[in-house]
Write a protein that binds this DNA or RNA. Structure first.
Lengths: 194, 194
DNA sequence: CTCATTTCTTAATCCTGGTTAACTTTTTTG
DNA sequence: CAAAAAAGTTAACCAGGATTAAGAAATGAG
């Protein structure tokens, strides 16, 4: 069922029936059970993953052995280690499902083939990367212009539904602080509104 | 003198003579004097800028009125606000030369035209954005796995030449701490090597 | 339904780096 | 070359979150 992906692509570029069929032919769909992995440290990242349903996380282990989440992947987002995927070098990231998920995979090989068969897709992925880049810029800004507490409160107002879906310690990890601290600020009334 | 740019592009994709000429035709070169601006808050970002020579910075003003540098642009790097450039919405960033600089500009209009005339360039910019994305990921990692002091010491060992070129307070701003703190750690011998 | 595991909470203590402010050195400009 | 502006230094005090540890609550598996 690659319809969701085709629909997403069509929001950025316009595919003909034939092109859409080629995209679909190069994509495979995978069910990922909660807590299962799409990538583990030391492996080469094999594919770019489009989340149709469910939620994944991308994290690395820091020197204290903590899992630091750098990205969540929810419906209609791509998740991968572009660096490892592109260079073929081993990744130090983990990609794991935090809910049962349905994912469309485009392997490195299919990806390269896709660029040849449907050159328009080059543009699509340029736009996807531009969007990811803009998101990263914004995240840097928040990191440096807000206190941890403010960042948490803002996140909750921006994505109230998402906060319900994930354990708190993962949100703390994503926002860059400890679960203890998150618990602390949840336990008191807001002073400043973010 | 767009040779530097063409050479750079050819490291990622292969342009024919004709294609290279079209790229050159759509690019304009500008000399930017130290402290002059390519973008100021409230303006719409007009172009993507390729640094041939010199050094620029991209920063925003936080709520305390401090200039927080999110990116430096040195030789062979692109610098722009992709979000504003793409959407046509006003930027809240500033791009400023911190040395006399020579810059190749590709305006939004030229950019769009370029993608039509030389579709290969779509791929080039996808790869450029991929590189920027990878750099952002790495920066997130360092931010969360190292103390400010370690990050400073690592930066100095990785880019000793660059550190010489810029004022310390800009390096502090880029690395995410205060000039006073930078001065403090410079004034003492390293305890842990980063 | 019960036991084991995972997740969340609370509190005491500590530390990294911020803030403020005054001063020194360097760079720029007329 | 002199004065002004910009950049860098030092130090006292402070605060936002980390760390550690122990227990409580929720979730899941058999």
């Amino acid at each position: 069922m690659t319809d969701t992906l085709i629909a997403h692509i069509n929001k950025f570029i316009r595919l003909t029936e034939d092109e859409a069929a080629r995209v679909a032919a190069l994509a495979t769909t995978v069910q990922v059970k909660k807590k299962h992995f799409l990538l583990q440290p030391g492996e080469v990242c094999r594919a770019n993953y489009f989340v149709v349903k469910g939620c994944l996380r991308l994290y690395f282990i820091n020197r204290n052995g903590q899992e630091l989440i750098t990205q969540f992947g929810i419906e209609n987002w791509w998740i991968t280690d572009y660096d490892s995927l592109e260079t073929g070098r081993p990744s130090h990231y983990t990609i794991q499902a935090i809910e049962d998920a349905e994912v469309i995979c485009i392997s490195k090989r299919s990806f390269d083939e896709l660029m040849v068969q449907v050159p328009k897709m080059e543009r699509y992925f340029r736009l996807i990367l531009q969007r990811a880049h803009t998101a990263a810029m914004r995240r840097f800004e928040y990191l440096r212009d807000q206190s941890d507490e403010e960042r948490y409160r803002q996140f909750v107002t921006l994505f109230p539904g998402f906060v319900q879906r994930i354990p708190q310690y993962m949100l703390a990890s994503y926002l860059g602080f400890t679960p203890q601290f998150l618990s602390k600020i949840r336990g008191k009334k807001p002073t400043k509104q973010a």
